[in-house]
Amino acid sequence: MIHFNNVFKNYEEVAAVQGINIKVNSGELFGLIGPDGAGKTTLIRILTTLLLADKGTVTFAGKDVVKNYLYVRNNVGYMPGTFSLYPDLTVEENLNFFASSFSTTIEENYHLIEPIYVQLAPFKNRKAGALSGGMKQKLALCCALIHKPEVLVLDEPTTGVDAVSRKEFWAMLKKLKEGGLTIFVSTPYMDEAEMCDRVALIQDGIIMDTDTPQGVTAKFGQTLLALRGKYKQATINLLRSLPQVKNAFPFGDSIHITLTPTSSLTELKKLLTTENLDCDNLKEIDPVIEDCFMDLMTND
C-alpha cells in the first residue's frame, strides 16, 4: 500500500533521513518508532505530499506520490503532530469544513467516525480551541477520517498524552484497523510498538530494523538479565565497571544487564556476591522493544 524506496532528505547540512526503505501492507497497523529528531515527521511529510524527497521514491497504492499528489491527498487521512484544526470554528464547523473540502458530507461518512464522534457530540457547538487535549485529538481524528481515506497517517498522536489516554487512543486505532483501514503511525513511546502489526525502528534517519514486534525481540540474540531493586547509581556504576558486562541500563524497578559473549550468568552471580549484592533478585528475562532499540543504538 505504501512503499518508501531508498528515500533521502537533507535540511541544509543536516541529513534527516538516509536511504529509507519501508513497505506497508494493505490493512496493516504499521508503527514508525523512534525518538524526536529521528526523521519520523520528514518521512510522513514526504508521504503526504507536503515535502519533496531529495532522492528516492514513495508510492501509494502503486502510484508515485509526487506525480499523483491529488490522488494521495484524496485518499490519505492525515493527522499532523501539532493541532492543526481551526480553533475559532466549532467542532461541527471544523468537521463540515473538512468534509466539504473533499466534496463529501458528514452524513455520508458518519458511520466511519461514529464511535469517536459520539464522545464529541455534546461539545459540537464549542469552539475547537476551547476543547481539552483529549477532545482536540478525537476531533482531529474525525476530521482525518471524514473523507473515507484508504490509509490513515498519524504523526505522534500520543506525544504528551498520559498513560491512560494513550491506551484509549490505541484501542481506537485497533478498532479502525479492524474496520479495514491501513494505518501508518509514528511514536516516540517504545511500549506502543507492541500494539502494532509491524514496526520500523528509526534513529538518526536510518531504519535499524523492520519486523513484527515479536520478530524484533526474537532477534535480540543474547541473554538479558534483570536485577530488581531501588534505583542506585552505585550499583549501575559497579555493573558497568565489570569487564563481563556489556551494557547496564536502569529499567523501571530493575537494572537490565547484557553480558559480553564469553561471560555467563553464574560468573556474574559469583562476582556480584563478592560485591555484596543480593543475587536473589537477579533473573533472566525476555527483552521488550526498548531493550532492542537501545541494543541496536549501541551496536552502531
Binding site: 523512534g34 525518538p35 505522534e156 516516540p188 534505583y231 541500563f249 532499540f293 543504538m297 549501541t298
Partner: peptide, 24 residues
C-alpha cells in the same frame, strides 16, 4: 516538567543519572 518527552531511550536514562547527581 516532562523533561524526557520524545527523548531516545539511552539519553532518557542518562538524563535520570543527572537527576540523581543533582539529588546527591
Amino acid at each position: 516538567d516532562e523533561p524526557t518527552g520524545g527523548v531516545d531511550p539511552i539519553t532518557r536514562r542518562q538524563f535520570w543519572e543527572m537527576i540523581y547527581q543533582a539529588s546527591e
